[in-house]
């Protein structure tokens, strides 16, 4: 299923059934963007297409509906990054309660699986990491925090993530790291590029 929803007069939100479908559609759109496209934002179940002007929208909608899914680039060669985490997050108890695990089990589940950056977004350097252990799937917090500190490690839905800098955020915080995830003096500035594998360890 590919549902195209309106997003103002300069955007379309394409809804798909799975993360794999998202990555496949994003691959084809990124390789050959519909005429007028300014930004493509892949996310968990959607691809947002933003266009330069409202006049571009009908053509882009037709193009998006008719696209064949593309081949997702094999990024298995992107390497593995180890991130040391101090597991003392404010929401660790809530996560333990929600998952039925102990605090130590939550930490073990987080460190024992290999995570992969599915896509980037939210803020520069933020990667949405997917793992293999579904026990850590937890809802976002009921109210978001206006300030989450840089380096905070969180969980939300099927994802884990690390806040690259202080920002608002609604993820369940389980720990923190000193690992610098965005540095404009590096090329590329982001560590968590799509396809990169992440191993968390106890600091």
């Amino acid at each position: 299923m590919r549902t195209v929803r309106p997003c103002g007069d300069t955007g379309l939100l394409v809804e798909l059934d799975s993360l794999d479908d998202v990555l496949a559609l994003h691959a084809t759109l990124a390789a050959d963007p519909p005429s007028g496209t300014v930004d493509l934002v892949p996310a968990a179940r959607t691809v947002l297409v933003r266009v330069a002007s409202a006049a571009d929208l009908p053509g882009v909608a037709a193009d998006v509906r008719s696209r064949e899914a593309g081949e997702v680039a094999d990024r298995s060669g992107s390497g593995t990054v180890e991130i040391a985490v101090t597991y003392d997050g404010e929401d660790l108890d809530d996560v333990a309660e929600h998952t039925g695990l102990s605090r130590d089990d939550v930490v073990a589940a987080h460190t024992d699986q290999l995570w992969t950056v599915a896509f980037a977004g939210f803020t520069p350097g933020f990667g949405y990491l997917v793992g293999s252990d579904e026990r850590l799937h937890v809802p976002r917090r009921a109210s978001s925090r206006t300030r989450v500190p840089a380096g905070a490690v969180g969980l939300a839905g099927e994802f884990s993530g690390v806040y690259p800098r202080e920002s608002p955020g609604g993820w369940q915080l389980i720990g923190r790291t000193d690992h610098v995830l965005w540095d404009l003096d590096r090329d590329p500035p982001a560590v968590l590029l799509p396809g990169t594998r992440i191993r968390f360890c106890v600091a």
Binding site: L13, V41, A43, A44, R45, R50
Partner: peptide
Amino acid sequence: AELPSEGVIRGSIQVPPS
């Protein structure tokens, strides 16, 4: 319901559970 994170644009009117 939980909405999986998705792209937003300038002008979006987002409504948290409150």
